[in-house]
Design a protein around this nucleic acid. Structure first.
Lengths: 205, 205
DNA sequence: TAGATTGTTAATCGATTAACAATC
DNA sequence: TAGATTGTTAATCGATTAACAATC
């Protein structure tokens, strides 16, 4: 049953989770409602209830949703109960930013290693990590059984690197390279290209 | 008429544009087809033809689309014929990466200034720019008539900074802060939160 | 209890796709 | 001409919303 849940619904769950965490941090209340959550996120309350109903009944009539409980449930649904080790490929400015970003750990991810093909960068300390040579990539990813990777490399090497990562067992890939990647069935890809996002907005200006 | 074109269609135009540029760079051909483009992007050819048909007739039966011509047309539609000046707010690791990224200029954007509230960072050279104090933000944005900004600051200051930017005339905002922002009607917002994207994928693992 | 809010149904709305006449 | 591919229509498919009985 969990199989035929629309992608678009899955895509909203992390947003709900993030807002629930914010509500918890504000600490003013133990409980929230689909109306409140929707209001804060610019989403209709009906949609939130519908989305959640795909996975079970998490609320109470008259009361709403217990923030802590719903947070746990969403974390479980998204497989975030334990942390995912993440490989960062590319130790340029962006890899640098990723390695130092401290927003991963409390949300289910830990940067476990970072690679570069530039001998000048290999061995450099980056956050808690040391830059590894990309020749060791397969060995380390297989050994650590890493399933999640982030691509922070130039576009012309993105597809071959994707192939290597997939080959080494990576199943989810977040790419900052401005290029469409081809992957086998069963491998997830997500893109982040700031220019694409900016261009989307300039249409309306 | 241009008004009632679905957001989701607008959102695909930059993808088409990017792929057309790649085709042009490969330089093997003057012409492409909805089928070829769709195949390269994992999108149906019907969808591409339908999307483009919202804006005019850009192709020729039997031949397809002239790459150069369609590129120009899409650039015009997305208002990319001249460059947009962009303000980056936040000169941390991410601001650093943005300031050094050279993928903006040939795609319609130029980082025109970068701000930080940390006196230690103000005056620092970053790429071609010098970090400005955030107290000068309104003055500079108004003077340069900047309409586009990128937020690379911590979440707890993102909403107040958004308000300041909007107040100074910014109409399009790309935010890397992991928080939903509230803006007045007519202001575009786009988000980039790597954790949200990773969480979306782990569901399937 | 009275008020509030859920989970769910059915209706509406919107997006995608298949198919094909037109035509280069 | 014959083959290829567009632009468009109508059908299908899927997502959102309104509404409300159930119930805390």
């Amino acid at each position: 049953m969990a199989t035929d849940i629309p992608d678009i619904v899955i895509g909203r769950l992390p947003i709900y989770l993030r807002e629930l965490t914010r509500l918890a941090e504000e600490g003013k209340q133990k409980t929230t409602s689909s109306h409140e959550l929707g209001h804060r996120l610019g989403i209709s309350s009906a949609q939130i209830r519908k989305d959640l109903s795909h996975f079970g009944e998490f609320g109470k009539q008259g009361t709403g949703y217990h923030i802590g409980y719903l947070t746990e449930q969403l974390s479980d649904i998204l497989r975030l109960s334990s942390e995912w080790d993440v490989a960062v490929v590319g130790a340029g400015f962006l890899g640098h930013a990723l390695a130092h970003y401290n927003g991963f750990l409390d949300r289910g991810f830990r940067i476990a290693c970072i690679f570069d093909n530039d001998p000048q960068k290999v061995g450099e300390k980056m956050g808690e990590l040391i830059v590894q040579p990309d020749t060791d990539l397969e060995k380390i990813i297989k050994h650590k059984q890493i399933k999640v990777a982030i691509l922070a490399i130039p576009p012309h090497v993105a597809q071959p690197m994707t192939d290597r990562l997939v080959n080494a067992g990576v199943k989810a890939l977040l790419s900052y390279a401005p290029i469409h990647l081809t992957v086998p069935e069963g491998v997830q890809v997500s893109y982040s290209d700031p220019v694409i996002q900016l261009q989307r907005m300039t249409y309306y200006l």
